[in-house]
Simulated scan of single mutants.
Amino acid sequence: MSSYMLISSRDPFECGDTEGFYQIAIDLKAKGRDVTLFLVQNGVLPARNSAESKALRHAIGAGVKVLADDFSLRERALDKAALADGITEASLERVVDALAAGTKTLWH
């Protein structure tokens, strides 16, 4: 089974095509793939408890593993307690490890 890591660096509140990128993750998961959505840079903004990102919540509900870059969170004064349920703080090292393991990676 193929593993996928989708890296989202765009703020979905400013970039209209982010929902489509999340949908790719959902579609891959529906096909039985191991899928991780890694939020980095402004891509971490919808990870907040207070954010209303239905598309991201839909991805979590579909079983997509969602990680938020710890450095990007700190740059935006967000801590682990600010994250919505189903989102885990992680270091960029997770991406490097996935690449080294041969995980197919898409960056948005």
Rank of each mutant, 00 (worst) to 15 (best):
H108W: 15
S8D: 14
L83Q: 04
N49S: 04
S2Q: 08
D34T: 09
V95A: 15
Y4Q: 09
E19D: 15
G43F: 08
T103Q: 14
L6C: 13
V40L: 07
A90C: 02
F38A: 15
G61K: 00
I87H: 03
E52S: 11
E93H: 13
H58S: 13
L67W: 10
A82W: 06
D11Q: 10
G32Y: 14
A77T: 07
L56R: 04
E89D: 07
Q23E: 14
H58W: 07
Q41M: 07
A62R: 03
A81M: 03
A98E: 07
L6V: 15
L56P: 04
Q41K: 06
D34W: 00
Y4H: 12
H108Y: 15
V44F: 08
S8G: 11
R94V: 10
G16P: 07
G61E: 06
L106W: 11
A68S: 05
R74L: 14
S53E: 09
N49G: 01
M5S: 06
K65T: 12
G86C: 09
S50M: 07
C15G: 02
R33K: 14
G16N: 09
V66G: 04
E75H: 04
L45R: 06
L83I: 06
R94T: 12
L73I: 05
I24W: 05
L6Q: 03
A98D: 11
N49M: 01
K104Q: 14
L67P: 02
A98C: 11
A25H: 00
G20L: 14
G43E: 12
K54M: 08
R76D: 00
F38R: 10
G16T: 09
A68L: 03
R74P: 03
K31A: 11
V95G: 04
R10G: 04
K80T: 15
